[in-house]
Design a protein around this nucleic acid. Structure first.
Lengths: 359, 359
DNA sequence: ATTAGCACTCGAAGCAAAAGAGTGCCAGAA
DNA sequence: TTCTGGCACTCTTTTGCTTCGAGTGCTAAT
């Protein structure tokens, strides 16, 4: 059943009012905004309540949006906000110094997102399985060499290996040939005991050299696959009125600080870069998030990698502004990491020019 | 002026009572413990108050230790606690899997410390300046090569360099020789523009290759010097009654979450491994820590590196137990990383056998 | 020097009244 | 019909007041 135009305007006003003030919104305040008397608003609101879009904390308080109300707002009512030039510039500035380690970048992206949105944020990149493209062995001295592995995602891993016995340059050269022959193009799951044993026999390896290098390889491949989840600004929660209760705040902070939970949720996120997903209150699977909301955006991290950034906040989250900021940051990241602009233009549409800012 | 034995016992009881309950301690409660009447305690307490060791929140509340009182307690009164076998075992377990990346280890140490003490914890290792020991260049294809730098601290850094033009194997070899000649043994501060220009001339480098590799080198050296500070369990603060006020909690959490502040304080920490430093309330330099206390322990991270672990909490912190735990963890880390036992024995003295636990 | 006793102080807890915000509903106007 | 003003009602919040009790400081007696 379709809502009347006026009901929509009222619902929008309630949601936005509640987002702004964290106080239930009463009929009188809306009367001016909507342009009819408070009594009319009241009867409309009581219908919206009956339909399940609004809730009353108690009989004589104003109305508050229900999760369904938020959902409707997010899906249909919310105006797609654009960033001010200042905000866009701040984001671009932060993202400008590319060329960093992915880990550090994720850290900074988390912090950036959190400080832009004023909510706790997390950032992560999910990587496809990788294999080694080539191995190089650097002979340092008779007890020491360095293994350098170039992976398919073009990252380079290395390890200094110090031996309790001495090896010759030639042994290392042999090792290098063997690893390049046997261990390139295989993912971590494909490195089996039998592969290692075969290689050991071929190398006439009696000292366990092959095993050492093989385990280093497996470590690299596994590490490249597991995504480190970065959580930033968890303490931002404390500035939200709904978390003035330290116990609630503690519980949620504990939950989100251990980023691993968030991974569980990922399969549900649609994988197109630039897409945005909003999960409101009880829509969250995790018990601990039942009265919080999560907004997630995905980006193209290049090399087939998909990345996510997200924000956690109370259900009374400023969805419109958060969505705009997340989209912009995600688009920026895609551009930075994969060189792909999001389908929908970018800067131009997403940024509000200073001159347009009138309200 | 020396305190009477009884005053010491009273002060100790007040401190420990307050630590345990977070409530001001009254004369009646102490009467039993000390073994004389409450009136006596009162007169003693009023003298302790005059001396500045105790404070009264208001006229008719019990007494609370002043910072000076805590200080005296920590310096002279506090009994050196030992860990139970279970606690020691938990720590040893966690530390057992050595052989990790130092960064990850620091992470886990922070979490361990925080969960053992129930306070926020931070962990870091301060490294001496490093230089490169040798460079190796791996020629991948005509647009791509890898630089591998072995540093004096025996870590290996690498970077894949992708060029917009092609180079020959020989150019890379020349570059390698030049870097090994000019850039080994120098710290990041010694890499000056003139050094880079000299090298560029020697290499007949018109493409900026030298500059790229030089800036990579500087980055490595700088990164190896700056210590990453890991903060763990910041939300633990919220379980302390003194931080039930969300604003206070927020302020302090913000402060400690950005670990860099803590570095400022380090010069003041005595550098012998195993040493413990307690900073109480107003003794802290940072404004934000003025009504919190910090306990820090240092450990020998091997290779001339000094590490620190620390705990932040309210002035009403359980100094005795925190000190014991930090010492034990620090000693364990020294052993793990540097193979040096702390001067004072270790396990035997620091751990309370199950059978001894009577109270 | 210690103790018992007593008056005093001051915060915490409890309670009732008042204030205020908002609702629901009805009767009358548009 | 649809909207509006009005009114009674509900429920929370605030406020001021009282009471209660823990703890003190002082004094006089042991």
């Amino acid at each position: 059943m379709e809502l009347s135009e006026r009901k929509k305007r009222i619902l929008t006003a309630v949601v936005e009012g509640y987002i702004a003030t964290a106080e239930p919104v009463g009929s009188k305040a809306l009367a001016e905004q909507i342009g009819c008397s408070s009594a009319t608003i009241r009867s409309e609101m009581s219908e919206l309540t009956a339909m399940g879009y609004l809730e009353q904390p108690h009989t004589s308080a104003g109305r508050v949006p229900s999760p369904a109300g938020y959902r409707l707002y997010v899906n249909e009512l919310m105006e797609r906000q654009r960033l001010t030039e200042a905000e866009a510039a701040a984001i671009n500035d932060k993202l400008a110094k590319k060329d960093q380690q992915i880990e550090k970048l994720m850290n900074e992206v988390g912090q950036l997102t959190s400080s832009m949105t004023q909510y706790p944020a997390y950032a992560l990149a999910v990587k496809p399985p990788v294999a080694a493209k080539r191995f190089d062995f650097i002979y340092v001295d008779q007890n020491t060499f360095i293994v350098v592995a170039l992976l398919t995602d073009n990252t380079v891993k290395n390890k200094l290996i110090h031996l309790p016995f001495s090896v010759h340059q030639e042994q290392i050269t042999t090792l290098s040939a063997l690893f390049n022959a046997n261990f390139t193009g295989v993912t971590d799951r494909e490195i089996t005991d039998s592969l290692i044993r075969t290689t050991e026999r071929a190398a006439h390896d009696t000292y366990g050299l092959v095993a050492v290098v093989a385990s280093f390889t497996m470590e690299c491949l596994a590490a490249a696959r597991t995504a480190p989840v970065r959580v930033a600004g968890a303490s931002q929660l404390l500035s939200q009125p709904e978390f003035r209760d330290p116990d609630k705040a503690h519980a949620l902070m504990n939950f989100i600080s251990d980023g691993s939970h968030l991974l569980d949720d990922l399969p549900a996120v649609s994988p197109e870069p630039g897409s945005l997903r909003v999960t409101i209150g009880p829509e969250n699977l995790a018990e601990e998030l039942r009265d919080s909301s999560v907004v997630m955006a995905s980006y193209d991290a290049g090399g087939g990698m998909r990345g996510y950034i997200g924000v956690v906040g109370p259900t009374r989250m400023d969805y419109s502004s958060v969505a705009a900021k997340l989209s912009y940051i995600a688009a920026g990241l895609s551009r930075l990491l994969a060189g792909t602009d999001a389908p929908e233009g970018l800067n131009n549409k997403m940024v509000l020019k200073e001159s347009e800012r009138h309200e």
